[in-house]
Design a protein around this nucleic acid. Sequence first.
DNA 1: CTGAAAGCGCTAACAT
DNA 2: ATGTTAGCGCTTTCAG
Lengths: 386, 386
Amino acid sequence: MTSSGGPPTVETIAEAAGVSIASVSRVLNGHGGRPDTVRRVERAAAELGYVPNRVARSLKGGRTRQLTFAMPDIGNPAYVSMVRQIQTVTKPLGYRLLLHSTDAVAEDELDVVRSLADRTSDGLIICPIRVTDAHLAALATASGPVVVIGSLPEGAGVDSVRADSVSGAMLAVRHLVALGRRRIGFVNGPADTVPGSHRATGYRSALAEAGLAPEPELTVATDFSVEAGAAAAGRLLDAGLGIDSVFCANDQLALGAAHAAHDRGLRIPEDLAVVGMDDSELARASHPALTSVDLGSGERGRLAAEMLVARLEPAAPAPGGPASGGSASGGSVGRVTVAPRLVVRASTAGPGAATVRQEAARHAPPPERVAPPGVDTSAVCAGSAT
Amino acid sequence: MTSSGGPPTVETIAEAAGVSIASVSRVLNGHGGRPDTVRRVERAAAELGYVPNRVARSLKGGRTRQLTFAMPDIGNPAYVSMVRQIQTVTKPLGYRLLLHSTDAVAEDELDVVRSLADRTSDGLIICPIRVTDAHLAALATASGPVVVIGSLPEGAGVDSVRADSVSGAMLAVRHLVALGRRRIGFVNGPADTVPGSHRATGYRSALAEAGLAPEPELTVATDFSVEAGAAAAGRLLDAGLGIDSVFCANDQLALGAAHAAHDRGLRIPEDLAVVGMDDSELARASHPALTSVDLGSGERGRLAAEMLVARLEPAAPAPGGPASGGSASGGSVGRVTVAPRLVVRASTAGPGAATVRQEAARHAPPPERVAPPGVDTSAVCAGSAT
DNA sequence: CTGAAAGCGCTAACAT
DNA sequence: ATGTTAGCGCTTTCAG
């Protein structure tokens, strides 16, 4: 017997339809054929429940039509919105998306980059939490197109999309200062990560700008999680530093901080104003709703995906030449920065604004971006990308 | 030239090392060889940065060592914890996990099951939100092992792990009744989904058990999201039904409900007790912390993964025979139910308990499962699996 | 329009 | 221990 057991293959179909495997392939790929042949092949395929073996197809074609997205933490809503936006651009193009949670382990990140070489996916979007020399080396020699979501040194030779979290942090702190807060705590994630160090820089710059002396004990660095936020804010509050507000490096930390404040009987924002970052769904879900700096997670995901597919499909090639292909080998390296926006909500708005919010909220949808009275009329403030 | 351009292949290495491709393959797979040969091959491979083409390897071996997990919503923390637990069992075995968010679209779920036939992954864990005849048909003819996380009719012929959400819902409602609440609202997800209908059943049973008449207007069905929860709870509260508590079909809904209550100036739990479901991190992050029914998401993920790998690797085959392989063709069909547990927190505990909690929370880690005074001393109540 | 045949990169007989 | 070869399932020349 020629084709037995196992799932049907082109050969099985060919036999059933009485044609050659070449005809089967052609028909199944819509490459024409005599009406009669087409009909017979399609019938046989349908009857036998034929599904092309994608692995074989990939081996032959050299492409898998699969893309990989590697993020530090699948539980972080900011990455979830990146995933959603990436999907919206890749799915219509017929790509499958492989999701990889690296848990912020550098070695795991490197593995992901290297695994591009195993031809399992055609391209990669990665959010490295740290960028070491090893990362740069791996990225430089990556065997397929890569787009980094994060800050890379100039001339890294890889497409990237970054948030301007330095400006974003400044937006947050300036907002607190404008509200009259002077003892501004900072709950950061790990300080040795790119986001962590940038946010710390922005925090310090904004303080300096406001003529406030930096006090190291006002900063607590931990981990990007709700639990860490609660613990860190707790320490800050219990230390008797007279904190009147706290800027948190992401919404999870801010949620934890709000929790710690509540546990201590503090009112938000009266006793403690809280600002988060990422403007994830957590910010809206929290009570009071969190003022947060939108770093454009979804937007960054979308842009990264667009840059990646541009490398993959030289759809509308520039009239200049046939440049395309692997990471930065063809075409010039892209480097986009997404500007941050401050979204003001009840966690920093005064009691007056809080009342307004509450009133309006009786009628869905609840209002967003309510400006605190007499402070800032445009609640959404774009930061300058530096 | 024999091997040029492109990435190095076994042939490239063979030439560089001066051996045959078979030797390259053997050495690289640790199948022995003369020390000298091994050294030369390894050196050549390292120098050329050789990475085996996994697609070719899969085509040859018939397995990809990739597994797929399909869930309705990647933004739901309950699924995130499933992902984490699945990883803990599959990763050590060398499997890669492909994550797929179906957005609760039935057609997408069917596609995922069918796509098992394209040989892209060796097995599938799926959480269908609805189980139609089409689902059962697709599952029955799946061309690889599948484990369903969810309730399947008896004799479905597929391994499954289910939560007992009927009992879980009863646990929640009984708890509210024990607390003296009588006007218990119910914020459900879509009623035509399996989780939705089961939770509704549990809600009604527990009411009946307590001698409370069912009032259809106390139930609002929407969508499993924070926004939907806020909107639904808002309608419930604005309808003047005298609601004193609300049971929500998941934590996202509960968070939304809590938000709606706050917006209306209601205190939790004094004016409105709130119970969620899934005991996700949202329950802890919320303020006040949410009482929630733990449906064992992580546990279900772990069990499903274990059942799946058991099909994949007949590691320790039962002495009976060599039964194994595809979904339920070999070996008997597994069907496990995970018992629910009620986790009591401040959103239902009386003011007294809330104080206790608040006190204790000053010293990390914050206490969990605080029993409301005089109601239930064992805060964690296992439900009977029916 | 159709069929025969090559070959994607790899592994595993099989032969030496 | 090593080399030769077949073949996984598919697409795509190349003849006819």
